[in-house]
Amino acid sequence: MFPSPIEKSSVGLRLAYKVLLPVALFLWLLPLLAIFMTSIRPASDIATGNVFGIPSSFQLLQNYGEVFAKTDALQYLLNTLMIAVPTTIISVALACLTGYALAIYKFKWALPLFFLFVAGNFVPFQILMLPVVDMSNRLEIINTVPGLVMFHAAFQTGFCTLFMRNFIKALPFELIESARLEGVDEFKIFWHLVLPLVKPAVAALCVLIFTFIWNDFFWASVLIRDDSNLPITVGVRTLNGEFVQQWHLVSAASLLAAVPPVLMFFAMQKHFIAGLTLGATKG
């Protein structure tokens, strides 16, 4: 283990580490803590300059309630859910198929096509923006939630394929080989043999893609103009414009937007991290 384990060092150092740890964390999360404190204080506090002290009264429920009552935050959150869940399902499902094809079959297009998925996954969004807008226009799905889901699902298929292919490649190939020799149909091998084995990868991808899509701002702002279809990220930005000088509400709305991915992360931490390392480092 590197650096040397702290329990083997002197008492002073050990104590210093134990003190330093919470202090460092406090500084690291200071912006977040500060905005949380703002979100639970009354508006009058900010006006009188009490931005960082003890709030004159704790208004957690009032402020967050006001966000829901005064704005379309609930609608925005629902829209985000309607975008993120189908996208996750479609792209992970498609990637199981493509990843399987690219990992198991040895045909000469396997590597070039795999690289195509990888390369497409890394391009800047702006190079796709105008043709995608144009196409959505002509397919008459611009400004709709399904239209946004279609794009997200297609784009995320690239990342999911990268991950899934590498995961399946690491499975023992002899299993598939022997099933083939027994005369099992290719689709049955996929369904009954490989799919149960890739469950961890599916879990990792689901958590990750859900978070990516939940946090997407660019594509939603390009493909959706209708207020009633906006996801929470764009919604919060709009609120920021409407609620000038009402920082307690803006901060409450921002934190609301962050809650679901944070919960997701804490619930599925192991899978989340496995996904982020692109499968490069196992563990």
């Binding site: 946090n215 701002f217 920021n240 937007a257 962050a258 944070v262 997701m264």
Partner: peptide, 12 residues
């Protein structure tokens, strides 16, 4: 901080 949306980080 990585889990939070960039929009929220921007606002913060």
């Amino acid at each position: 901080p990585f889990v939070i949306s960039q929009v929220v980080v921007g606002l913060i």
